[in-house]
């Protein structure tokens, strides 16, 4: 019965959730709410909302201390000091910058400048390993865990397979970007598991710079190698030149899949998948619950991304290719179609 009163009390406050700063659930008599210090970088957005909603929905009493750096890196040192002074139960860090500044590198955090004794969860860090927040995704080996927001490659491949089974996957990449190499290695390994071959073609490099003009030829090369899909990785060079790449793919009659939102929504990639921030926030809160309620060590909680993702289908491109999505996938997807009639 007690628990139900609590849930009721929490939910009553939940109605006012539109104004997140006010959303500080009332402590329950006899049991103190968990105090969570939320360090944000670009204000209150979906991830923070998902984080907060999770506690409300699960009936876990929390007091959220919300601080927004407003994209000002210099404020973060103050946040660290404040969190330590308040002796909060948990720290939540949003984004790579905040996480790096507040939690420090995994191998040598500075107890004076970083949060070390208080358990922390991070969110919206695209490359936690690359950013040296954690040594690997299995364990942080310290008082930290968190979430990534990139759809795991395996999930991406399964998604492409569900659109149409394929045996050759094409990819055009920037050889100067080290991340591309990692993606190629991982995809090659996955190909052995899932029985497909990766056809990865680097763009031409001139004067130490990748040449966007070479993209259409490379796409044609991939197509000629028998690729059924073109894989578009989340990569800066590609993102900048997305129109050239996706346009070339469409021209070549090669369906394209993007692991980012822009190529699909604002360009001509045929379909794509990303993790939305709201479920990332929920998943981060889920890890916080494991630390606070179930008293698990953060080092024991692996870092991962939400299992399900937002799938987007660019319908004009689909029609132009005449390469239609299966019914079930269509049902699950967000369809981008400016001329949509239904």
């Amino acid at each position: 019965m007690k628990r139900r009163h609590l849930i009721a009390g929490l939910a009553g406050l939940g109605i006012g959730a539109a104004n997140p700063v006010l959303a500080q659930p009332r402590p329950r008599s006899g049991e103190k709410p968990f105090r969570i210090y939320m360090a944000l970088f670009r204000g209150w957005e979906d991830c923070a909302q998902g984080f907060k909603d999770y506690f409300v929905n699960q009936g876990i009493p929390v007091e959220l201390i919300v601080r927004d750096a407003g994209q000002d890196k210099s404020k973060l040192a103050g946040f660290v000091a404040e969190a330590k002074e308040m002796k909060v139960d948990l720290v939540f860090t949003w984004g790579t910058t905040v996480t790096q500044e507040m939690l420090g590198p995994w191998d040598k955090p500075d107890p004076a400048r970083h949060i070390t004794d208080i358990p922390a969860v991070f969110a919206i860090v695209s490359q936690p390993v690359g950013a040296k927040v954690v040594p690997d995704l299995v364990s942080s080996r310290r008082n930290v865990t968190g979430t990534t927001y990139l759809v795991p490659l395996e999930t991406q491949m399964a998604l492409i397979q569900s659109y149409r089974p394929f045996s050759v996957l094409g990819m055009v990449y920037n050889p100067l970007e080290p991340a591309s190499r990692i993606t190629i290695d991982e995809l090659t390994a996955l190909g052995r598991q899932l029985d497909f071959r990766l056809e990865a073609v680097p763009v031409d490099v001139a004067d130490g710079k990748p040449q966007p003009t070479s993209i259409p030829a490379k796409v044609a090369e991939v197509k000629a190698a028998g690729a059924l899909f073109l894989y578009i990785p989340p990569d800066t060079f590609i993102n900048v030149n997305r129109d050239v790449l996706t346009g070339a793919a469409l021209e070549a009659g090669l369906p394209s899949f993007a692991a980012a939102e822009n190529p699909v929504v604002n360009s001509k990639a045929m379909f794509g998948a990303v993790c939305r921030y709201y479920p990332v926030g929920q998943l981060t809160a889920y890890k916080a619950e494991q630390i606070l309620v179930q008293k698990r060590a953060p080092a024991d909680i692996p870092i991962d991304a939400p299992k399900r993702m937002a799938i987007m289908i660019n319908m004009p491109v689909v029609r132009a290719l005449g390469f239609y999505p299966p019914m079930n996938l269509l049902g699950l997807s967000e369809v981008i179609d400016p001329e949509s009639r239904p």
């Binding site: 689909v318 029609r319 239609y324 019914m327 369809v335 949509s340």
Partner: peptide
């Protein structure tokens, strides 16, 4: 409703995909 949605996106009725799984 679901098939009509697909048709509405311009998929011809005879080129629907994955109807079996659906």
């Amino acid at each position: 409703g679901q098939v009509s949605r697909a048709l509405g996106y311009g998929i011809p009725v005879d080129r629907l995909v994955g109807v079996d799984e659906f």
